[in-house]
Design a binder for these strands. Structure first.
Length: 370
RNA sequence: GUGGCUAUGGUGUAGUGGUAGCACAAGAGUUUGUGGAACUCUUAGCACGGGUUCAAAUCCCGUUAGUCACC
């Protein structure tokens, strides 16, 4: 088994563990920034080292389009090409299914996508996606899943669950690379029975870890958390659980207490680019005029490069000038905020104090008021 | 000093006698397996004083301010 649980919290379902990969270990629970094109938006790999990123996620479909499998074969993988020594996850491209710009059509065999670069057509099957992820050489590959957007008809989710299960079996059948872990994905919208069915089927397969997908897409928070519960209830406790696409601080803390070990999301960086930054007292909109003359860091307790050097007034000034560099500074803070939150969560689980920690965090972390 | 021109939200502007619009700015909100933004909502204006008219941002007179030209 590639995942070891080190300690379980007694009052919640939170746990700490170690994920072993071909490029070293990752302490769980952890958060992965999204590195779509070989770099995070406005954030370099040096930055990621600096803010103590353990692991990131890229997208196999987008890497297949550019730089393309030919180049990745020449460099003997993605790690060499970008010079990153630590673990890498790759998403399959299933997420692009819901994107009208990419999606062309779907059959039993797989999906036809359109390249956003030149409009060319490309076919992706569960088998082909695993092959691509092997060429990329990611440490963890995700299976191709059928992800449907939020608030659709039940039939759409039923079909998506059917496809997701059948594609998962096909991906497992062709997976031979022992240096690469493979994670299955649970779909099913927010309906209890569909989540339950999909989770049970995916759980039966010999995956190294299991992801919960298809959430944080516009459904209510209540329904999202219910869907997480419905999925987790039907998965083996011993397996590593990955909640895909969820990245707000409060959702992460709530999900850890349910037993989730792994997260990825564009939320922290997207928020940062638009001037919304995380603090322990809640997110703030730095564009607001009231920050014009606040000569203090975002947070004194934050150890990110931005907080160590700059004041809110300075960052507010850059933001109002539309200075691109401020996107770097704020993205660094938001990612580091999440990493540090998870570092503390791991320590508190270790100390057996996670329930109190999470309650205090959620009590303090409030939406901005007048 | 004389003459011309101009004056509309914070800024820039549209509006030839009939419900003052638009953009940006400002304020509130949304954003979760990346297209680097977008969207929703709110606030806010006819320089001042008089006149003509059923009705004036609009026409007339004066004041003030700005601007240009001339002396």
């Amino acid at each position: 088994m590639s995942y070891k649980i080190i300690k379980k919290d007694l009052k919640t379902k939170a746990r700490i563990g170690i994920l072993e990969t071909a490029h070293g270990t990752v302490k769980t629970p952890f958060f992965m920034p999204v590195v779509t094109k070989g770099i995070a938006k406005f954030i370099t790999l040096n930055h990621l080292d600096e803010i103590k990123t353990q692991c990131f996620i890229s997208n196999a479909y987008l890497l297949y389009l550019k730089p393309g499998e030919g180049l990745l074969k020449k460099t003997k993988g993605y790690h060499n090409f970008i010079n990153w020594k630590k673990p890498i996850f790759t998403d399959s491209g299933g997420f692009q299914l819901k994107n009208k710009e990419f999606f062309i059509s779907m059959t039993e065999k797989g999906v036809w996508f359109r390249s956003p670069y030149d409009g060319s057509k490309h076919f992706m099957s569960p088998e082909r996606v695993m092959e691509l992820q092997n060429i990329i050489g990611s440490d963890v590959g995700m299976v191709l899943d059928d992800m449907q957007d939020a608030n659709l008809n039940r039939k759409d989710y039923e079909k998506a669950v059917e496809n997701t299960i059948s594609w998962a079996k096909r991906a497992i059948a062709v997976h031979k690379n022992k240096n690469q872990l493979i994670f299955g994905i649970v779909q099913g919208g927010t309906d209890r029975d569909l989540r339950e069915k999909c989770a049970k089927e995916i759980n039966k397969l010999p995956f190294d870890g299991i992801a919960i997908g298809g959430l944080a897409l516009g459904e209510s928070k209540e329904n999202m958390h219910k869907a997480i519960d419905y999925s987790l209830e039907n998965l083996d406790e011993s397996k590593i659980k990955y909640l895909m696409g969820v990245g707000s601080p409060e959702d992460i803390i709530l999900s850890i207490s349910k037993g989730v070990d792994c997260f990825d999301s564009i939320y922290p960086t997207k928020m940062a680019r638009h001037g919304h930054i995380f603090t322990r007292k809640g997110p703030i909109n730095l564009k607001k005029a009231k920050y014009k003359v606040v000569f203090e860091p975002i947070e004194r307790c934050c150890d990110c490069p931005t907080c160590k050097r700059h004041t809110l007034a300075y960052l507010h000034h850059l933001l109002r000038q539309d200075e691109p560099g401020v996107k770097i500074l704020l993205s660094l803070h938001n990612i580091r905020f999440i990493h540090k939150l998870l570092e503390e969560a791991r320590e508190e689980i270790e100390k057996g104090n996670f329930e109190e920690f999470s309650k205090n965090f959620l009590k303090e972390y409030k939406r901005e008021k007048l």
